[in-house]
Structure formats: structure tokens, C-alpha cells
């Protein structure tokens, strides 16, 4: 597991849920882990919603100064620089959706590239209307790369239909995910799905715990 891991993708692809679970997984191996919620796009559902759970496990949580408040101000916290520049902590960055979200990443990219100990995963959900196919998903990947100029290193297939998801829905997207891996030239690193689905026979399975929903 690399020192810095970034999750990018189309908005609503499931980045925050995966970022939170990935941080828990990192914490099993490393003492110092931090998760930075740098999503400047989505005002409602975010990884910050799991703040108390993360902090209980000793994971530092860095959030936008005004996230989950009434102030709709997309400012990035200075602490994120610390995460990227100081190399003694394993950092997970939950990046906002699409190219717009990834734009905010640009200022950190020189530091990340200089250290060159990072993974940047593209999170794909083939049930999202604008990324129904590998070709459409590749289009979003290219837009994100153009915005932040940091090359992706792998693909996570997080295809799901929310609470209605059954195992078959996940299995049926494997071919599309493999096609995306092929046309992008990147490895398919995980197939993520809700842990309530039990064990599913998919490439590199990664069952995840979903954030709590209130309605």
C-alpha cells in the first residue's frame, strides 16, 4: 500500500465509502493514517460523515473548513499540504467528483509526483447513467487527468444499485470493468461491494461497510 492513496471518479461513484474503508484497512498495518475529505463539489454526503468512527480507530480526519455547515464555500484546508509534504503518515485523499473535483488536487500534484509513492484509483460504477460503459468511464478518467495532471494507477469497480444491489448486479459488471482496465492500460485493483452481500466471486474482492444513511 502506497503512502498516498487518492480516490477519484465520476461523482456518486462511491469514492467516499471506499476511501473510509481503505483508511480502516491501512490502519490495520500502519500506525499513522489520515483521511482528508477534499471533496469541494458535494455538499451533502461525504466521508466526513464517518468522522467519529474514524477517529475512534485513531485515524486523523481532515475536512474542508466549512464542510457539513451552512457555508457553501469550497476552500481547501492547509493541513492537506502537511499530509502531502510530511512523509511520515499514510494519507487517503477523498477527491471530489469529475474533473471539477479533481481540479482542486492540482496544487498538490508536484509534491505527490516528486515523492512518487502514490496510488490514484479511478472508482467506476457502471450503473451510473453517464458511465454505463468502459468507453464512457474512460472519457471521465481522461477529463479528470486533464484537470489534475496526475496519472491514474489503477481501477476500482464499485458498480452497485445502492440498497437494491444483489450479488448478480456486481458480477455482471466484471466484464465491463476488465474492458476498462484493458483500454486504459491499468490494473483492476479491487471489486468493491457492500459487505452485507457476503462473499462474491469477482476479481480482487473488497467488501466494504457502507456509511450510515438516515432516510
Amino acid at each position: 500500500m502506497k503512502r498516498v492513496t487518492l480516490f477519484c471518479g465520476h461523482y456518486g461513484s462511491g469514492k467516499s465509502n471506499i476511501a473510509v474503508n481503505y483508511a480502516f484497512r491501512l490502519r490495520e498495518t500502519y500506525d499513522k493514517v489520515a483521511l482528508a475529505d477534499v471533496d469541494v463539489v458535494n455538499p451533502y454526503f461525504r466521508s466526513l460523515d464517518s468522522k467519529s468512527e474514524l477517529e475512534e480507530k485513531g485515524i486523523r480526519v481532515i475536512a474542508l473548513p466549512f464542510a457539513n455547515t451552512n457555508v457553501d464555500l469550497p476552500a481547501l484546508p492547509s493541513e492537506v499540504y502537511g499530509l502531502v509534504e510530511r512523509r511520515d503518515i499514510h494519507a487517503v485523499l477523498d477527491v471530489g467528483g469529475d474533473d471539477r473535483g479533481a481540479l482542486a488536487l492540482g496544487r498538490f500534484v508536484p509534491y505527490i509526483q516528486e515523492e512518487n509513492d502514490y496510488d490514484m484509483f479511478f472508482v467506476a460504477n457502471f450503473y451510473r447513467p453517464l458511465t454505463r460503459t468502459a468507453t464512457e468511464a474512460l472519457g471521465v478518467m481522461n477529463e479528470i487527468f486533464s484537470a489534475c495532471r496526475l496519472p491514474f494507477t489503477g481501477i476500482i469497480n464499485n458498480s452497485n444499485l445502492g440498497e437494491e444491489t444483489v450479488a448478480r448486479d456486481v458480477v455482471e459488471t466484471v466484464a465491463e470493468a476488465e474492458k476498462l482496465a484493458e483500454i486504459s492500460g491499468l490494473p483492476l485493483v479491487y471489486t468493491t461491494y457492500s459487505e452485507r452481500l457476503g462473499e462474491i466471486n469477482v476479481p480482487s474482492p473488497f467488501p466494504i461497510r457502507l456509511q450510515k444513511k438516515y432516510f
Binding site: G12, N160, T173
Partner: peptide, 16 residues
């Protein structure tokens, strides 16, 4: 694949 898609309410308005 299921013929359903996972959408935000706002996206559903636009596509519909």
C-alpha cells in the same frame, strides 16, 4: 446488467 441505473435525484430530473 440490470436495466436500472443509480442516480442522484437531480440527475433523474435532467435525464427524465
Amino acid at each position: 446488467m440490470s436495466d436500472k441505473v443509480l442516480m442522484k435525484g437531480n440527475e433523474a430530473i435532467a435525464e427524465a
